[in-house]
Nucleic acid binder design. Sequence first.
DNA 1: CGTAATGAAATTGGTTCCAAAAACACGTTG
DNA 2: CAACGTGTTTTTGGAACCAATTTCATTACG
Lengths: 222, 222
Amino acid sequence: MLSQAKTTRVDNAYERLKSDILNGDLPPGYQAPEPDIAARLQMSRTPVREALIRLEAEGLVELVPRRGARILSVTTQDFLEIHQILSMLEGLAASIIAQRKLPAHAFDELSVIIDAADEALEKNDLEAFAEHDDQFHRLIGSLSNPRLQREIDVLLNQICRANKVLLRLNKGPAALPIGNRDLFEALKSGSPEKAESIARSHRIEGTMTMKRLFEECGLTHL
Amino acid sequence: MLSQAKTTRVDNAYERLKSDILNGDLPPGYQAPEPDIAARLQMSRTPVREALIRLEAEGLVELVPRRGARILSVTTQDFLEIHQILSMLEGLAASIIAQRKLPAHAFDELSVIIDAADEALEKNDLEAFAEHDDQFHRLIGSLSNPRLQREIDVLLNQICRANKVLLRLNKGPAALPIGNRDLFEALKSGSPEKAESIARSHRIEGTMTMKRLFEECGLTHL
DNA sequence: CGTAATGAAATTGGTTCCAAAAACACGTTG
DNA sequence: CAACGTGTTTTTGGAACCAATTTCATTACG
């Protein structure tokens, strides 16, 4: 029996708020005082407060003293900085994965996701593509080690909405040169340096594409 | 006047607990229920709780449901993983710094710290050396950008006690090949790739030295 | 003598309450 | 009409309180 999460109110509030934020239900810029949020979640202020503190530590919300909790938006600057950090961390993750031999089912899992992403892209279903691509990156993190995974997850959370929105803005039939399959091969081949370099440049390429979109649309934040 | 920190009880508790943890006043493994901590800090449980949640998010304490808050210790595994991540992030920081021209006073500040560390090492004052070395790394972070700085700071916090202890265990006259000055020159020369590579390999060398100490002393955690 | 059971104490998650400070609305005045 | 002052409302930081659950200790029993 896996650790039976004894669902406490704080956890509940945390999970619900986080998911609401990530899927855009609570859009960036949205701002509400604690009592409102507490009412929405049908609990007292205390557990909400504690959940908000956690979310603040993860860079998803900002607690402004007398103005309520505000869902953080991502500026172009933020976006670039986060991608830059991710390129390093995912590079490290890839290097770690390539170093030790992965069980076969892990490769299978990766492969399935890559295929799903490719398929979504062919069908021009950008929503699904973004979802699968995100999953791919998170899986890379989870295959490295828990600490690195958490680090990567937190950063991905901060930009996943922005990623989705940007992708949707991309009108053309997505000439994104995605190299997930390349990374997959490098991981399989067991060459840490190669895996790291591919993961890193892959991420950086993606960043550049996104940056272009940012500029084309004249956006300063999302 | 810079942002006047309106010293709230939560902030107070957070700062005091953090500093107590970092300087070893509250040693790793120490465990106490919330009421005790609240009494020690002479405030009610509420602000203490909130401070503890923040500290947990930063990986310094663990909140065990009915056993109190426990100061986390650092296992060899943790230590290596954190250093590995730091090698990437500091590499990135160095690259960023080298890319844009730094104001002269920043270089001066760096130089002063490097000299202080070297001097401490010559006098075999390992305590002071650890302190200055830590400051050097944090300064590198702070010269990159706030986001990267916070990331690096959090990780340094998790291992700074371990670093100090390990250094104290190092009996020999510290044959640590510290290359802080090399990094300084690379930053000044303005070559991002070189700066990154030096920062990274510098950190990795340090890791290896530390790891050896870990093993020689037969320690599994600190 | 070790183990199970039972009752007491302690800790936590959470609600409620309170006071202080800030924001807000409104009316007054220059 | 704008700016200011005043009184009200809102929000937050924090404390006190409570119930539920767990731990601890003591005792009884095999």
